[in-house]
Design a protein around this nucleic acid. Structure first.
Lengths: 190, 190
DNA sequence: CCTACCGATCGGTAGG
DNA sequence: CCTACCGATCGGTAGG
């Protein structure tokens, strides 16, 4: 595999992220993708094995980036409050760096083939576990206040995931500030 | 059209809501739907005109229910705080009454055909305008505190829309309580 | 990387 | 409501 081929595959991957995020994985066709990168439909297959493979690569790359991010945060010596703020920033960084991939990761993962779907769900479960642990530790230290851990966790995670969709229209710093305010006020003393 | 036909159409609509919410509109097939209601694929067309029509009916019914709800709330004499609480309840009521339709309304509207898509977006814009007005009025009365109106509004609306997905696993009262706490704390004095 | 093409599946129709 | 069927479109392959 030459470096030409690698670079063309990256172009196709980026186009696929764009296409899948806009039309959804199922409505997107190889013919759409081919015309986006200036190839005939069949020529796409010189660079990829299947349409499914594109979805797998997009979803898994993103999932691994979140895992790496949360592993770094979890292992550092910081207050729970700072860890939560770092998590907010992790989501925003990915959303602003890979706006299209983040949408595919968030909305289209359910169309992964069975094996990769299972893998994906395992990663998500691990991510959620580490995220929850930060919340619970904060609660035990008397820094965060909440009942209904699962609901609280899901509200926070959903709020962070939401940013993928509306990201381009807002200034990143304003969004970070507002999200921090929202989430940290939420966890404040009643 | 007999009452038999109406009732069968309702069965098909419910099945379509279920199917579309689980597989997504594009991946769902008329053959799936037919087997869910115990008919041959072609027999579906004795009750509906097209697959698209099912999506239109599901999305528009839901959209109209939101419009009706917010119109009632807006026209009543209540504090901004009570109006916001009524909006939270509106979203929860719809989410718990029509869990499948709410998901289709929230995730699949973008596959509406052009004319209905435009209509849908107009309704959404009108809804958002009324929702924002309640927030802004509360701010002007010194009840709510926030900057970045658009971001704040989008965070709140997204949080309410999120409930569609995880609804069945939580007790409605617990969820309402937590959401109210989340949103009203968010808007509290800094 | 293209031309040519294929089997599978889709939404939907004809006719009864 | 069914049997039979169709044109369109899809993901993907053969061969060069």
């Amino acid at each position: 595999m030459t470096s030409e081929a690698l670079s063309k595959k990256q172009i196709i991957l980026h186009a696929a992220a764009d296409l899948f995020s806009k039309k959804g994985y199922n409505a997107a066709t190889i013919r759409d993708l081919a015309s986006m990168v200036g190839l005939e439909p069949s020529s796409i297959y010189s660079h990829i094995r299947s349409k499914e493979d594109l979805l797998i690569e997009l979803c898994m790359t993103c999932a691994n980036q979140f895992m790496e991010g949360i592993n770094n945060i979890s292992s550092e010596e910081m207050s729970s409050r700072k860890k939560l703020k770092a998590l907010i920033l992790l989501h925003l960084d990915i959303a602003y760096l890979y706006p299209a991939s983040a949408i595919v990761f968030n909305d289209e993962w359910r169309f992964l083939p069975p094996q990769e779907l299972q893998e994906f769900l395992h990663l998500r479960k691990a991510y959620e576990k580490k995220f929850k642990k930060i919340l619970i530790t904060g609660k035990e230290e008397g820094k965060f206040f909440f009942d209904h851990t699962d609901i609280v966790f899901n509200i926070i995670l959903n709020t962070l995931n939401y940013t993928y969709k509306g990201v381009k229209q807002y200034d990143k710093n304003e969004l970070e500030e507002t999200l921090s305010h929202f989430i940290l006020n939420f966890l404040n003393k009643p």
